[in-house]
């Protein structure tokens, strides 16, 4: 085997190609984030600094320091390509600079404070929605399941069309404002400090139920619809007919044949849905004033804190790209028909 053969085999390797794709996502996204402000001809950072300078007040102290940092960072006198290089070098080191509104707090620490809330909320919600939605879809797409299921699940399927935050507004009005079963906002009670105690954990769960339900209810339908479609498609396949002809019991047909094959595309859909779930949950967090990434992003938009917006969007895209990569790479383990070796 020559060196060239080895190179060729690495290039055709599935994992390697997926990794290249992951890098490409990050490169295209970060380039877009770099170019868009320059295309618009406006400079949100400078405008924000000028605004703060005019206003004076508490920002005054960090202003000069910040302006220096700002011109050093972007080297505005240098050509575009150098600016681009500097920007990329910063991104590679995950250095997003300081927050403008909360100077000298860094973008990273702002994101670090809130990431755990969003991660916890979304991980639990996605798991529940995936699990329940897939089961519902499997039952809906199975010809032998009782008819009344259609009437129970159909309204839930239509909820798939409604954005999470509209549902959040309705839930908060009914269950928090009118019935007073759940708190109106926040991730934990106002007077407490985060700690690892039984009471605090219970408080966090109590606060999370409403935001979580709005995300789960609104995303159930997506999973149910996808699963139902796959179940219906599988119905006419040869392996289903063969299994039925063998006289296998219904329950075995359902789980080992129909569901086993229909659930595979659901896992690829999982990769694509992560982005939707995150962006959908941004406004849910805003509405519940949940202390997660979405709320931080909203505050940053309101304060025109461009570094925070940029850093957060970059981190979210890297996370999504990474999740997609992991799902893509593990997919052949679930579905032997997709092989590692051949290029897509």
């Amino acid at each position: 085997m020559t060196f060239r053969d080895i190179l060729a085999s690495i290039y055709t390797n599935y994992v390697f190609r997926r990794f290249l794709f992951f890098l490409l996502i990050i490169w295209i996204a970060s380039t877009a984030i770099f170019l868009i402000p320059r295309l618009s001809g406006q400079d949100p950072v400078k405008e924000k600094l000028l605004l703060e300078a005019q206003r004076g007040g508490h920002m005054q102290a960090g202003l000069e320091e910040m302006a220096a940092e700002y011109s050093r960072k972007f080297g505005l006198d240098k050509p575009l390509i150098v600016q681009y290089g500097n920007y990329m070098a910063d991104l590679v080191r995950f250095d997003f600079g300081p927050s403008i509104a909360y100077f000298p707090k860094s973008v990273n620490s702002l994101i670090g404070d809130s990431v755990i809330w969003t991660f916890g909320l979304l991980a639990v919600c996605t798991f529940i929605a995936f699990f329940v939605g897939t089961i519902a879809g499997a039952l809906l797409g199975w010809p032998k399941s009782p008819n009344f299921l259609q009437y129970i699940f159909m309204p839930i399927l239509t909820l798939a069309a409604i954005p999470y935050y509209l549902l959040a507004l309705v839930l908060i009005y009914i269950f928090a404002f009118n019935l007073d079963w759940f708190p109106l906002f926040g991730g934990y009670a106002v007077a407490t400090l985060p700690e690892w105690s039984f009471r605090f954990t219970f408080d966090v769960i109590h606060h999370a139920i409403l935001p979580a339900s709005s995300i789960v209810l609104a995303s159930l339908g997506f999973w149910a619809l996808g699963m139902r479609g796959m179940m219906v498609t599988n119905q006419g396949e040869d392996f289903m007919i063969a299994a039925e002809a063998k006289g296998l019991r219904s329950i075995r047909l359902f789980f080992n044949y129909a569901v086993r094959n229909a659930v595979l595309p659901q896992t690829t859909a999982l990769a694509l849905s992560l982005g939707t779930v995150f962006t959908g949950s941004v406004l849910v967090e805003v509405i519940f004033r949940y202390p997660g990434l979405g709320n931080t992003l909203y505050q940053a938009i309101k304060l025109n804190d461009f570094f925070v917006i940029r850093g957060m969007i970059f981190i979210v895209i890297v996370t999504l790209g990474l999740a997609t990569f992991i799902i893509d790479v593990t997919y052949p383990l679930l579905d032997p028909r997709v092989s590692y070796k051949k290029g897509s």
Binding site: A29, P37, Q42, N304, I309, R310
Partner: peptide
């Protein structure tokens, strides 16, 4: 893979 709304946020923040 990149959620469109994130790119839209960057665009909208810059147009303003």
């Amino acid at each position: 893979t990149i959620p469109g709304i994130l790119i839209l946020i960057v665009i909208a923040v810059n147009i303003q």
